[in-house]
């Protein structure tokens, strides 16, 4: 598990690679706690967003179990009117939550950048 400083440093690199970067956090799935975060928007409550998204991840995993899907979840993509939100599972207990300005970026760039950096969070 990387330290909080390592997590924040890696998010700095993601922000540098990704136009329209708004906020990102590494989240403990079970508790919903942020293990490290970076935000360019002071009005974006990343701790609350991370906690709610951990509930979403847990519910989706429950659904997969209920459907007896013998596979794993890689990521979840949510497209809002002006933002793209990505949840990328990086270990059995953690995921990255990332919010990007849709007018400055697109899904291909988001996935490419996040895949490039995700190993550092495992």
């Amino acid at each position: 598990m990387p330290s909080e400083k390592q997590i924040v440093d890696e998010f700095e690199k993601i922000a540098a690679d990704m136009p329209g970067f708004m906020a990102a956090s590494l989240v403990d799935t079970e508790s919903g706690m942020t293990l490290g975060l970076k935000s360019n928007r002071p009005d974006f409550d990343l701790a609350a967003a991370s906690a709610y998204n951990s509930e979403m991840v847990k519910q989706k995993l429950k659904i997969m179990k209920a459907l007896n899907l013998r596979t794993h979840m890689e990521d979840m993509l949510i497209t809002l009117g002006d933002q793209i939100h990505v949840i990328k599972l990086v270990s059995p207990t953690t995921f990255i939550y990332l919010a990007v300005d849709r007018s400055q970026c697109n899904l291909a760039i988001v996935r490419n950048v996040i895949n490039k950096h995700s190993a550092a969070f495992a």
């Binding site: 508790s31 919903g32 706690m33 942020t34 293990l35 975060l37 990343l46 701790a47």
Partner: peptide
């Protein structure tokens, strides 16, 4: 600080 309380909300 943020990240110092559980549950966060």
């Amino acid at each position: 600080p943020s990240g110092a309380i559980w549950p966060p909300v």
